[in-house]
């Protein structure tokens, strides 16, 4: 080896992610300023916090000794409402999203139908469940029906979009093959597309069932029925042990539905 003949650098720095030095420092400074201003804007009321600390401990205590008994009637009614909302909204949502999804698939829907369906999907997806719930409560009054409408509406946006994408992705060759036998539009839909899309549709519906249950626990806060309303009431009354019981039930039901729907999805696909 010719050591000493060539001189090699003795320093090396990893090239930075942003090569422009001034821009890099500007970004660093910007982040720093944001953090200072942002964190500074958080007002912490230390007196309230120490009071809250004691409540927090009481709440944690509620988890250790949850009280399912005292408010059991309310909890049971809330849970039944939530589950009923979840099931009906998912079924109706799925039934509506099938035509909407087909209409939103570019490869089979005529242009005006495509645009209308896509607009409906975009509207459903960009409006938060809770905001939709506020509007429905204003229209049909307090109670689980508003929740049902909210969840069904949200299901359409979720499911129809994925369904449309699935239809757009399907194997064109298979559809061609069916069409080549002289099949009409409905037959193409039935044989060429249904067979390819159905397993995924079932899987997605079950996945949405999970999501709908989780959401059903929330929209009660704005009066759309379900266990969320019960939870809200329990917290308003400072009944932390009942609130803990409700939370535990929600977590358990979420876990069970997630497990069951995962199992069914595994079987179907």
């Amino acid at each position: 080896m010719s050591e000493g003949a060539t001189r090699y650098p003795r320093h090396w720095r990893r090239p930075p992610l942003i090569s422009d030095g001034r821009l890099r420092w500007a970004i660093y400074a910007g982040v720093l300023v944001y953090l200072v201003v942002g964190i500074g804007a958080v007002e912490v009321n230390w007196g309230r916090l120490s009071e809250g600390w004691e409540r927090g401990l009481r709440f944690l205590g509620g988890f250790v000794e949850p009280d399912f008994i005292s408010r059991w009637d309310d909890i049971r009614a809330g849970l039944i409402e939530s589950l009923a909302m979840t099931l009906t909204a998912t079924v109706v949502g799925v039934l509506i999203s099938i035509p909407v999804g087909i209409g939103a698939a570019r490869n089979i829907a005529p242009s005006p139908v495509y645009l209308a369906c896509r607009a409906l999907i975009a509207l459903s997806r960009s409006l938060q469940e809770i905001i939709v719930a506020i509007l429905f409560v204003a229209m049909v009054g307090f109670g689980p029906l508003a929740g049902f409408l909210t969840l069904a509406f949200a299901t359409i946006g979720f499911l129809a979009k994925l369904l449309a994408e699935d239809i757009e992705d399907i194997d064109a060759a298979q559809v061609e093959a069916i069409r080549a036998t002289g099949a009409g539009w409905w037959q193409v839909l039935d044989y060429g597309i249904r067979s390819q899309v159905t397993p995924r549709l079932i899987g997605l519906s079950l996945y949405r069932l999970d999501i709908n249950f989780r959401e059903s626990a929330v929209i009660g806060i704005v009066g759309a029925g379900g266990v969320g309303a019960t939870l809200n009431t329990a917290l308003d009354r400072y009944e932390y042990d009942s609130a803990a019981a409700i939370l535990i039930l929600i977590i358990v039901i979420v876990l069970v539905t997630e497990y069951v729907s995962g199992w069914v999805r595994g079987r179907v696909q």
Partner: peptide
């Protein structure tokens, strides 16, 4: 922090 001794860096370049 990717600060290796200068001798290591020199050797790596070699």
């Amino acid at each position: 922090i990717r600060r290796f001794p200068p001798a290591d860096i020199e050797n790596a370049f070699r």
